[in-house]
Design a protein around this nucleic acid. Sequence first.
DNA 1: CCACGGATTTAGACTACGTCCAAATATCGG
DNA 2: CCGATATTTGGACGTAGTCTAAATCCGTGG
Lengths: 139, 139
Amino acid sequence: MAAPNDNDLIARLEQHDIRASAQRVAIARYVLATEDHPSADEVWKAVTPDFPMVSRATVYNTLQLFTEKGLLRQLVLAEGCIVYDPKVEPHHHFVDDETGAIEDIPWTALRVGKVDELEGVDVRDYMVVVRGRRKGRRR
Amino acid sequence: MAAPNDNDLIARLEQHDIRASAQRVAIARYVLATEDHPSADEVWKAVTPDFPMVSRATVYNTLQLFTEKGLLRQLVLAEGCIVYDPKVEPHHHFVDDETGAIEDIPWTALRVGKVDELEGVDVRDYMVVVRGRRKGRRR
DNA sequence: CCACGGATTTAGACTACGTCCAAATATCGG
DNA sequence: CCGATATTTGGACGTAGTCTAAATCCGTGG
Ligand SMILES: [Mn+2]
Ligand SMILES: [Mn+2]
Ligand SMILES: [Zn+2]
Ligand SMILES: [Zn+2]
């Protein structure tokens, strides 16, 4: 990706109702352009050489802010953070936004196509991860 | 789920080439019967009242062992362990088993059906998570 | 029954990641 | 420039997970 210059970044932040500080631009420069899916700490480590004195708290808060404003998405895919599932046969999962609870969705309840057409990968396993809320939950 | 008795559990462990110790049975009693998707520490906390002196290392090692032997599956879905994705439009993800690297899969490369037929949930978002290896990787 | 050796478990030190807060600093409108 | 507000800071703190060397357990053969 062509590195965006700082004026583009500042404009982009302001379009999203974010005031552009030097720290925020430095963080945006990395995290909005990367092809990776970095953890917060990886962002901190990536920004530090550029901007040595940025504090960890600022990076965490800024990523949270960018997410609220729609510039980033959070994914729960970081290796090293594992839950265990005693149901070892293939199935899908629903994650409740409010509680974080994980529920099983039977394999046949959803239909996934074209996985075998993916190029360049040996697929070991796949599942659909659905996020949302349980309906009819008491206020 | 009907609580399995210890003899059933021991048999099940031995069928999977796992020698049945008291600690392993206590861990199995909880983790093989739960409907939850507990983290390792949640398993530890669940087993402790039952078996107060079981050490954290034992629980972690045992869950790893059970996974290798096919009694459990590890899922990367635990809340609180987040990576950031600058691509906010819907897309799917491939996770490389060897490196943990996460790559994007375009939305249209896969087809997911019947999500709107799920009962009792308001779907906010969903994606397919594919795991496996990149083909043609050097030895 | 006992001794041996491998398997298993243990406590606790250690690391990494993330959260939190009160104080310091920067920025903005007037 | 001033005061108000927004932002950043360092560091204390908590928690989850890893690692290791020593202790214990347990099946086996003598
Ligand atoms: Mn990464
Ligand atoms: Mn849980
Ligand atoms: Zn499941
Ligand atoms: Zn992505």
